Simulated scan of single mutants.
Amino acid sequence: MHSLIASPFLEQHILVRPGRRGGALLPEQHYEELRALDPREPSPDWLAEAVRGQWDDLDVTGRPAGDVLLVRQPSTWSYSKASWEVNLGCNYACKHCYLGLKVQSGMAFPDKRYCLELMAEAGVLWLQVTGGEPTIDKDFMKSWRHAYGLGMMLTLSTNGSLLWRQNLLDLFKECPPYRVTVSMYGATKASYDELTQREGAWDLFVQGMNAARSARLPLRVSVIVTEDNAYEEQAMVDLCTSWGVDHEVYTNITPTIYGGGEVLGAQSKEHLRMRRQFTGCNAGHTFFHMDPHGLVSICKIGRDDQISLPNEGIQGLARLGAIADRLMLRTGGCSGCQLSGACTVCRPLAKHYQEAKAPLASYCRHG
Results as ranks from 00 to 15, higher is better:
220 R>H: 14
262 E>V: 04
237 V>T: 01
150 L>D: 12
250 Y>I: 07
228 D>A: 08
239 L>Q: 15
180 V>L: 13
148 Y>F: 13
249 V>S: 12
275 R>S: 15
202 W>S: 06
153 M>K: 08
282 N>M: 10
279 T>W: 03
164 W>G: 03
208 G>T: 11
148 Y>T: 04
227 E>A: 11
154 L>C: 08
210 N>F: 04
181 T>A: 08
177 P>Y: 11
241 T>D: 13
279 T>G: 07
168 L>A: 03
236 M>I: 10
280 G>M: 12
259 G>E: 03
251 T>P: 12
248 E>R: 11
152 M>T: 01
229 N>W: 05
187 A>H: 02
221 V>Y: 13
272 L>Q: 15
226 T>K: 01
233 E>Y: 10
254 T>F: 09
221 V>K: 00
151 G>S: 03
232 E>A: 05
223 V>L: 04
276 R>M: 13
170 D>Y: 02
194 E>N: 10
201 A>T: 00
274 M>L: 11
167 N>T: 12
153 M>I: 02
222 S>G: 09
216 R>W: 15
171 L>Q: 14
194 E>M: 03
185 Y>G: 13
277 Q>H: 14
183 S>G: 14
190 A>Y: 11
253 I>R: 01
157 S>V: 15
256 T>K: 02
205 F>G: 01
278 F>W: 15
176 P>E: 06
231 Y>I: 12
156 L>Q: 03
216 R>C: 13
202 W>T: 04
274 M>V: 11
236 M>K: 05
261 G>T: 08
252 N>F: 06
157 S>R: 12
217 L>E: 07
265 G>Y: 04
148 Y>L: 04
157 S>D: 15
226 T>L: 02
221 V>A: 02
171 L>I: 14
166 Q>F: 07
211 A>L: 00
220 R>Q: 14
268 S>D: 05
229 N>C: 02
225 V>N: 00
221 V>I: 14
273 R>Y: 11
239 L>V: 13
190 A>C: 09
190 A>M: 10
199 E>P: 10
202 W>H: 08
280 G>D: 13
209 M>H: 10
153 M>P: 02
168 L>N: 07
237 V>C: 05
273 R>E: 11
237 V>A: 03
184 M>I: 10
159 N>I: 07
173 K>G: 09
224 I>H: 02
266 A>R: 00
259 G>V: 02
162 L>G: 04
208 G>Q: 11
180 V>C: 12
254 T>E: 07
282 N>A: 09
207 Q>T: 10
265 G>C: 03
260 G>A: 00
207 Q>I: 03
191 S>Y: 09
160 G>T: 01
204 L>G: 00
225 V>Y: 01
233 E>G: 05
195 L>I: 08
232 E>S: 06
208 G>V: 06
181 T>K: 07
250 Y>E: 07
249 V>G: 08
231 Y>V: 14
178 Y>W: 13
214 S>P: 15
148 Y>G: 05
153 M>F: 01
209 M>R: 11
244 G>Y: 10
